Amino acid sequence: MNTALDIKELWHSGVEAVRGDVAVAHAIAQGFVARPDHIIAIGKAAGAMARAACSAFPDASCLVVTKYGHANEAPATSHVIEAAHPVPDDASLKAGRALQAAVSSFLQGTHLLMLVSGGASALAEVPRDGMTLSDLKDSTNTLLATGAPIGEMNTLRTANSQIKGGKLLAGFKGAQVTTLALSDVEGDALATIGSGIGDAPEKPVFDFHPHIVASNTIARDAVAAASPVPVTMNAETLYGDINDLIPRIAGELAAAPSGLFVLGGEPVVVLPEHPGKGGRNMALALGLAREIAGTTGLRILVAGTDGTDGPTDAAGALVDGQTWKESAADALERADAYTWLDAHGALIKSGPTGTNVADLLIAMKD
């Protein structure tokens, strides 16, 4: 069995099960969505989500806000704004103002379909009074560098925003909002996904119908269902600092019987003052390569379901017992895992996947 090929295919099985278009089409087929007058899609998977919605409801207006390079799947009839992630830029402010203007313009009696996926926090923003774009960038960079968990980041983002935490929909004068969300957060809380940009205000004056239509659990279960070997572990425990996760995961793999291990979540990495090129998944994979160096019959893939890891074009990496070399120690310390893994042919590059339900770690032990 070609294990290297199979483990990548398993990752793709998980990703395909939670694609934005698949999840939205399924929700519509189940009758979760009445015919909307307007569609707004925000996040890394906004294009794919909007494509399914606009296919079902071609007469609805459609606004898509997504990450640079992620708009290929957006409907041709939609108005698309691309912006930066994970650090907001001028286009993020343009997107935030466009969302505010659109939502406040919708007439009484109308139905708005909100499609939300991870990444929305950075892609669209209207800062609170007195806060500049420079302030937002500095705040975001500090949180990223210190390895702050996503819940802490989104709490601060909500406090600094005029459109997060239900504030965007506070300006809606219509009759109904339906929100379909892909969850990239622990616990799948709508108030946390995209910092609550698709959530309702505390006392909405409209009917509100929220649905989580894809999650890390669904992706992991799809990987497990497609596995050609028995599944030894399937858990959403990939949270915390990678320096804590690396020895824990390596120990679990060493002690466990052969089979497939599927972990999900979103680890964090603390960056040095002048980091190199990389992301949390690449750093975790390279750290695990160090721990399993010299072993046979064990391969570990760590990758973001959205197809990107950090500010790079890679989703993550695939390592085994022969990957680690002493030259990797310096790359790991300098947070330059991408450069080293790229030179050693270990990166996973999928391009935008049309979804975002956090990260997957898949390990196959023969």
Rank of each mutant, 00 (worst) to 15 (best):
D336N: 08
A91P: 12
S161A: 15
L190W: 01
P275E: 02
I163T: 15
A41E: 03
E291R: 12
L5Q: 15
V33P: 05
A83I: 13
M131N: 11
H12L: 15
Y338G: 03
P352N: 07
G69W: 11
A95N: 07
S13L: 09
A250R: 00
L144F: 10
L347F: 04
D342Q: 09
G196C: 01
E291W: 11
D138H: 13
H211C: 00
V205W: 09
F206G: 01
P127R: 12
D241G: 10
K173M: 10
H209N: 07
A200F: 02
L133Y: 01
G187S: 08
P230N: 11
L144E: 09
T305E: 08
A56W: 03
D313I: 14
E236Y: 05
A235D: 03
T66A: 05
H85R: 12
D59Q: 12
E291F: 12
V231G: 04
I246F: 05
P247G: 04
G276Q: 00
V262D: 02
L318T: 04
A34I: 01
Y68A: 13
V103N: 06
L144N: 09
L133I: 04
A317C: 08
G130E: 05
A343T: 02
S104M: 05
A363M: 04
A254N: 09
P352Y: 04
A48V: 07
A50Y: 06
K67R: 11
F57A: 12
S78L: 11
A84I: 13
L360W: 03
T308C: 14
R220E: 15
H26M: 13
Q30V: 03
I197D: 01
L361I: 06
A226E: 05
V24M: 02
H85Q: 13
G287Q: 04
